[in-house]
Amino acid sequence: MGVSEELRALADVVDRLAAKFPGMPREHIEDVVQQEHSLLDAGRVRAFIPVLVEHAARDRLSR
Rank of each mutant, 00 (worst) to 15 (best):
A56K: 13
A42V: 06
K20E: 11
R26I: 03
H28S: 02
E5K: 00
D15Q: 08
R46K: 15
D12L: 15
V45F: 12
A56E: 15
M1V: 08
E30Q: 11
M24A: 10
E36P: 04
S4D: 14
A47R: 13
V45T: 04
M24W: 10
R60K: 12
L17P: 03
F48G: 00
K20L: 10
R16N: 04
V3F: 14
I29G: 04
A18C: 09
Q34T: 15
A18H: 09
A47N: 08
L10P: 09
D41N: 08
M1F: 07
V45C: 11
H55S: 10
H37I: 01
R26K: 10
P22M: 01
R60T: 08
L61W: 02
V53R: 00
G2R: 07
R60C: 00
F21C: 05
G2L: 05
R63G: 12
V51L: 14
E5D: 10
L52T: 02
L40T: 02
I49Y: 05
K20T: 11
Q35L: 12
A9R: 07
H37V: 03
R58H: 13
R63M: 11
V13Y: 14
Q34D: 01
V13H: 03
R8T: 06
L10C: 08
D12P: 04
Q35D: 15
V45G: 09
A9Y: 04
D59R: 15
V32Y: 01
L61E: 01
V53Y: 09
A42P: 03
V3T: 09
E36A: 13
V45W: 13
V14Y: 03
I49K: 14
E5A: 07
V33W: 11
H28F: 14
A9W: 07
S4Q: 09
S62V: 00
